[in-house]
Structures are given as C-alpha cells and as structure tokens.
Write a protein that binds this DNA or RNA. Structure first.
Lengths: 229, 229
DNA sequence: GTCTATACTAAGATAGAC
DNA sequence: GTCTATCTTAGTATAGAC
C-alpha cells in the first residue's frame, strides 16, 4: 500500500496556507446549499468523532443524528449522503495537516538549518494530530474502508503531504545533514507512521508540549543509542 | 452493529467471564464444539482479511459466509456469534506477536548485547506483521470499534507485548547501551507505533528481508543524522 | 431546518429440514 | 455441516407536513 513519492512540485516554498493547492474535489455537491453554517460543521465534528470510535461502517446516519440531537432525515438538509459527509471529514483532516506543515516551514527564519526545519515539521504534525485528532484518525482508518472513488481522491491529497516530507528529507541529504539511508524511503515511511500513530496515545484534551516535539525530533535524528563506543 | 451492549443470551449461552491473564484462550466457548477443524480456521482467515479491508462493522456474517462459499447461517455451526469470531482473530494476532518475540529473544546466543537483542525483536515484529498481517491489522483497528468487554480483554494481552519491549529497553538502559530518553516511555511508544504501521506499506506477499530489519534497527538506534558535526 | 412516516435493503441470529 | 426460511432490528434515503 506504499504511497511513495510521486512528484508534485518540488517547490519547497508554500504557496497558500489555508486553501488546498489544487482544488481536488469537484465530485460531490450537496443538493441543499447549506454546508457552511455552524450546524453543518457540527455534523462534521460529530462524524469525525464517530469514525474514530466506531469506524466507517459503524458510523451511521442515525447515530450522527442522535449525537446532534436531531433525526436522521434532517441530516439530508445539510448533506446529500453519508459519503459526502465522510468525504468532507477526510478532506478537512488531510487539508489541515498540509496547511499546518506548509505554514510551519514558511514561518521559519531565513536560512534555518535542517534540524530546525525537521523539528518544525514534527511540531506541526503533532499539533495537527492534537487539534484535529478526530479528523486525522479518520483519514488513517478510512483508506481501505471507504468506497473506492472516495478513497482515490483522498489518496492524492495524502501524497501531497508525503511529498512535503520527502522534499524536506531530500534537501537535508543534499545539505549533508542526513545520512544516505535517512534521506527518504523506509526512514520516511517509518517516521510518518510513528507520527500518525501519535493520535493513539496523545491526550486529545491537551496540546502537545514543545518538549514532546523535541523528544521526537531527537529520537529520529539521533536515535536511542548512546554515543560512547 | 446490533450486538454491542448486552442481551446475547436469550438461549442461555455462556456469557464470557474474565479472560485468564496468560492462558491462551479459554474465553469464549462456541456452542458447537468444532473450532479446531480447517473449516473453522478458514473462517478466521477470511474474517481477518475482511476486517482489514472493511473494518469491524463492515465485516458482516453474510460477507464472511460469501467469501467462504457458504451461507451465513452455517457459520453458527462453527462459532456462536460474530463477536466470538472477532475475538479469536484478535487473540491470534496478538498471540502470534508475543510468541514470536519471546522466541526471538530466547533463541539469541548467551550474552547477546543490546543491539543484537533489539535487532532480533524488530525482526520478529516485522515477521509477525508479514506472516499474520491481516490478524495484526485487525488488532490495531479494532481497539475502539469493538464491544467494550472484548476490547478490554484484548488490551490486557497488548500490554503483555508492550511489557516485553519495555523490559528490553530498560535492560538496555541499565547496561548503558541506551540513552535516558530512549529507555522507554515516548521512545517505546513511537517505535511500536512505527512498527505496527509497517503493515500499511509492507508487501503482504513477500517476507520482510533481513535488510529491512537492519535498516529499521539502525534507524531507531542511530537516527538519521550524520555524525560529522 | 426539523419533523413523521415510509420504502427498501441488509444486519445478527434462530429453527428445523436434509 | 450446510441449507432455506424467517424473525427482529437497524441501515440509507425520500416525500411531504409544519
């Protein structure tokens, strides 16, 4: 299932921090045009939470409605189908992760070294996982559970995030800050896997501390082994 | 997902008592005593695969039956309920992981150093993930999707595996092979997370190479950073 | 914007024939 | 050991009243 690097722009410079770069979803359009209001957003929050707790198939319209204090039929005023809600949840999760990472890199002082950039990216990832944890877990669990076309659209956005990391590591390698084997491939996959796993043990009610990001960055950069031998 | 809370025993079926701490599984007892034969095992394989592909709620008795080429009602000759099948899948996944790691450590030459023990444990983990990948993914996805009592029993077995790793790292720390921050806690959680994520990108049809285990061990032990500064 | 009522499908599970 | 038939509950979704 490896979604390895696959060439997007190797810009390295962010273009936009709050909007998706490529306007991916033309697909699903809600019949009732009411998807911006707070009630509609609340339904997304609820759905993200339910997906985290019970998976895709276990997240039913009736349960979403019950959590929102309305009846299932009322949801169709906001969204055209269950899958439209799910798609929006997926989209928001990955979209926030991409935006956070772009912003973290853009906010770095000019000429920041690799360790600093690396540390910033990890901090951004942990922050996203914390702040949008429910959405984020959803994107992880749903890859295989969701209808194929929906998954395919989502996979493309995943690659965007993966490419950001690949570019950063590649750059670090060119600068001589990172070893050959650490420049991407297996190392990247492992790091992203470990990071995405953070939603499993992080307290959703507490912001990840700077210290946590430091420890994680140190772990990846220097490993656990002592140096005295 | 009808069967969450209670009320499965209209017919006086034995409701599970607490799972014994270590003894394999005395837990759920199928009414029809036929759980050892190949047909029953095949149902487990199919269920594990379905759980990986569609999650807990998406894995239905009808689908399991269809994959096995029988009708849903026939499953009840082998297992008393959907949740009994699921529990066996979970149990086998974590059980194999524990057994593999125990064996890997036991098979080490007398007086093997920490890096060797560490490398062996990682190899065992990757092997398990490959050989019992479907079961293993299941254990990851089902923690939250599954009925509470079922999850609770499973969690205890997870801790067994976690403790094996914690002990190994602690020992490495006492030997001076591992840094303070690497002796456990966050580092352990991250490593296990990354390892459990391996099922996402490993080719299920190919054994993990020794080289892969080497790279992973090197990554965790030494990090990705170059040493020349 | 939410409701009730309803159509249709599919879920887990049981009974009893073969 | 597997089948057909069936029960009950719950799923997505629509129509139309308020």
């Amino acid at each position: 299932m490896a979604s390895n690097m696959q060439a997007l722009s190797k810009t390295g410079k962010p273009e936009n921090t709050d909007a998706p770069a490529m306007a991916p979803h033309r697909a699903a359009a809600a019949r009732p045009e009411s998807r911006g209001d707070s009630a509609s957003v609340a339904l997304l929050e609820i759905t993200a939470q339910l997906i985290r707790d019970r998976g895709y198939a276990g997240t039913t319209m009736r349960r979403i409605a019950a959590e929102a204090g309305i009846k299932a039929a009322s949801i169709y005023h906001h969204y055209a189908s269950k899958d439209e809600i799910v798609e929006r949840v997926l989209d928001r999760g990955i979209g926030e992760a991409i935006a956070h990472m772009r912003k973290a890199i853009a906010d770095l002082p000019e000429g920041a070294g690799f360790p600093q950039r690396f540390r910033a990216a990890i901090g951004a990832y942990l922050d996203t996982a914390s702040q949008f944890g429910t959405y984020f877990v959803a994107t992880r669990q749903l890859l295989t559970h969701v209808p194929p076309e929906l998954a395919e659209r989502h996979r493309r956005r995943r690659m965007e995030l993966d490419t950001l990391w690949a570019d950063m590591l590649e750059e670090g390698y060119r600068e001589g800050a990172v070893t050959q084997f650490g420049k991407g491939g297996l190392a990247r996959v492992f790091m992203l896997g470990a990071l995405s796993w953070s939603t499993e043990w992080m307290d959703p009610n507490r912001k990840p501390s700077d210290e946590m990001a430091d420890v994680v960055a140190t772990l990846f950069l220097g490993g656990i082994e002592t140096r005295n031998h």
